[in-house]
Amino acid sequence: MTLRYLGWRLLQVVPTAAAILLIGFLLIHAAPGDPVLALAGQSGDAEYYAFVRDKFGLDEPLPVQLATYVGQVAQADLGTSYLQGRPVAEIIAERIPATLLLSVTALILSSVGGVALGAFAATRPHGLRDVTATGATLAVYAAPVFWLGQLAILVLAAGLGWFPVQGMTSPRSDATGMAAALDVAHHLALPALVLASQEIAAVFRLTRVGLLGELASDHVRTARAKGLAEWRVLVGHALRRPLIPVVTVIGGRAGHLLSGAIVTEIVFGWPGLGRLLLSSLQSRDTPVVLGIFLVVALFVVVANVGTDLAYRWLDPRVHYR
């Protein structure tokens, strides 16, 4: 990976990020009523509105306003929540860890699970396990994530009682240290599994197809002819190339993962961005909703670039421009 390529690729983020900010800006101005309402919320006093108006330059010409807006966002100023009377950035930042915990757990589960399932199916193509795994992932892939969550609650949490139904921690629990971590893990298991299931389907399909090709390839035959044990042929040779597109698919689905996380959080009462989004929607707290959009969109852009760089690093044959 040349530094020049790295710089060039990072430079490409700029127009995309600019476009996303422009969309945010346009939405504020296209909103019914005074744009200040979209930045400061519905129920401020006149003095506060004047302050926000001044800060975002709302009395200036539009191009100046745009520049001011971009400047404010760059300083992580996303306006003020009308409900909580606090900076939006602060409120969002509080919720990010919970969402990140859920998403990253799901990401790990789905990558490992999807690849393992793909390998499980591809080593006996068209056998019973292949057909079962393919059918199951097709079904899961088509199911809406909130429905999977509801079913999981119905069967595994409310029905069998294996998992807690709602939340991130047990109510009235004063556990600390290890016990607290285990409590969170117990709450995390089901939502993470539900969120992961859709990604598992995507990773599974890609792994399976790639692996089917690789297992019949000449270089895998060479690996076998060397005398390598079958699992080493699989892990060291056959899986290597299929993993590359899997990495890109995982990165390319960052937006999908996050929207899934939002919905999953709502189903399971997980205290992350999803819960925040829902309560902001219900109380018409537009600055927060807009802030979440900006944060997520910029994150997705970064994730895409990261994926792209990872791809080039993984495949030595890709040429840099």
Binding site: D218, H219, L314, R317
Partner: peptide, 18 residues
């Protein structure tokens, strides 16, 4: 690979590309 070894027609595809 120890007692009986084998080489193939197309060494490009017989080697792992990555």
């Amino acid at each position: 690979g120890a007692e009986v070894a084998m080489i193939f027609q197309d060494p490009m595809s017989a080697l792992h590309p990555a």
